[in-house]
């Protein structure tokens, strides 16, 4: 599969599943000492060849002016983890929960197995932010996906599809938590050691 096809597939699904708005979100992969990242302001559902920006991982080149606003965070993650792919999305239910919680503990089965726990971190400036770039990689040392309060999620993977899956799972998990809260009754624990997920 060509790189464009792979980016397009993931970008389209991010939009169609409501994980990003028309021009929101960004995705990248690491290729040797290069980073290939979506263009600033690109529409993830309609990526074309010119929307894939190749620039230096360790140093700037002219490609930087076209790169996503979040390249500073992507670079920081690649510097500090063994990630080969990064997805950043704005999942609505997860963002809503992040405004009220310090960590998200899924209650559904799929996310319990896959994620266990999603840390929520907060910074005053959230877009293209040095603060975010400084903090997020620390969390990604331990967790494959983290929530930035009020902004969105960053995930890492060895493969782009893997990083994307984590957003889809997270958003589903958050919708389920939200639906549960609408019902208002106390949650009935069905998992062994469910109370230990906070220690993951």
């Amino acid at each position: 599969m060509s790189l464009l096809k792979e980016f397009s597939r993931i970008g389209r699904d991010l939009f169609l599943s409501g994980l990003v708005s028309s021009h929101g979100g960004n995705i990248s992969i690491r290729a040797g000492d290069k980073i290939i990242i979506t263009r600033r302001g690109s529409m993830l559902a309609h990526l074309n060849k010119e929307d894939l920006i190749e620039t230096g991982l360790y140093k700037d080149d002219s490609g930087i002016i076209m790169a996503s606003t979040e390249i500073i965070v992507h670079r920081a993650i690649y510097f500090n983890t063994s990630a080969l792919a990064i997805v950043h999305s704005h999942p609505p239910a997860a963002i809503a929960l992040s405004l009220f919680m310090d960590e998200i503990i899924p209650i559904d089965s799929e996310a319990s197995y896959l994620l266990h726990k999603i840390p929520v971190i907060a910074t005053k400036e959230t877009i293209g932010s040095k603060d975010v770039a400084n903090i997020i990689p620390d969390y990604l040392q331990e967790y494959k996906i983290v929530m930035l309060r009020g902004h969105g999620a960053f995930s890492i993977g060895d493969i782009l599809e893997e990083a994307y899956m984590l957003h889809s799972t997270l958003e589903n998990a958050c919708r389920i938590i939200a639906y549960g809260k609408i019902f208002g009754n106390a949650f009935k624990e069905y998992r062994k050691d469910g109370d230990k997920y906070t220690k993951w």
Partner: peptide, 27 residues
């Protein structure tokens, strides 16, 4: 990854993107 789809399936006849994945898997 190339046949069993772990963690996800990738194109096994492609040379693209394999370098990083091999290195990470070796580590």
């Amino acid at each position: 990854p190339e046949l069993l789809g772990i963690p996800k399936k990738i194109d096994r006849f492609s040379d693209n993107g394999k370098a990083g994945l091999v290195a990470v898997m070796q580590d």
